[in-house]
Design a binder for these strands. Structure first.
Length: 223
DNA sequence: GCGACAG
DNA sequence: ATCTTGTCGC
């Protein structure tokens, strides 16, 4: 398919100016995890959003949306590929969360506008980007000690954090999405860690979106 | 010019 | 991301 990527990148630059990087939310009652998976050789996009209570972190609802894949994967343009499906799932929710952990980068992006920023602006809800690998920014080595972290930098400007969330696991790349500060983005992810590499909301959404049999049992309880 | 590159 | 069982290491 023919895609004018220069136009999409221009949209990102314009939208990035609207992203809010200070805390604009009270202590959340519900925190969500959002992730996307694919079926049929990538022709179908499947988005999952898991709603969990705070501070219990118990799953109370989840929604899945399946739509035809609109774009191929292009580094830097992930939001245009995943947001449509995420928005479909969002509209199905009976409970709207006050904070969302989105898989992928927040402002740690070449245009300072990753998928977490894009989705947060779209639904006007605070979001934090939690990515499993690096896209943009530099950082010094992370100690092996769980809980250790380093700032993720762009020259002299900090974009986020690189956190060793679990022993012998690759670190997490955390950055503000929308209406969240640098300090809070790290703090909330830490609060949602329960012994696994991924924070609970993200881990749950990831399991559901990836259709892992392991998660099919536990999610049946909440319906 | 060459490599890097969220999911 | 996805195709996929056992297996190496802490």
């Amino acid at each position: 398919m023919a895609i004018d990527t220069s136009e999409l990148r221009q949209q990102q630059l314009e939208k990035s100016r609207q992203v809010v990087l200070t805390d604009d939310f009270a202590t959340p009652r519900l925190i969500a995890g959002a992730d996307v998976g694919f079926e049929q050789q990538g022709t179908v996009t499947r988005a999952a959003i898991a709603i969990m209570t705070w501070p219990e972190l118990e799953l109370i609802e989840y929604q899945i949306a399946r739509i035809p894949t609109l774009l191929p994967y292009i580094p830097g343009l992930l939001s245009f590929r995943e947001c449509p499906a995420l928005y479909e799932a969002w509209q199905l929710l009976q409970h709207k969360p006050q904070l969302v952990l989105v898989d992928g980068q927040g402002i740690a992006h070449p245009r300072y506008f990753g998928v977490a920023c894009h989705f947060g602006l779209l639904v006007d809800i605070p979001t934090i980007g939690v990515a499993k690998s690096r896209l943009f920014g530099t950082h010094s080595e992370i100690e092996q000690q769980p809980g250790s972290y380093q700032p993720l930098m762009d020259k002299t400007q900090q974009l986020g954090w690189v956190l060793r969330s679990k022993k012998r696991c690759n670190p997490l790349y955390i950055s503000p999405g929308h209406k969240v500060s640098l300090a809070s983005s790290l703090w909330w992810v830490e609060q949602c860690l329960k012994g696994y590499r991924l924070p609970e909301p993200t881990r749950m959404a990831d399991g559901i979106a990836s259709n892992r049999t392991k998660f099919k049992r536990m999610i049946n309880k909440s319906r």
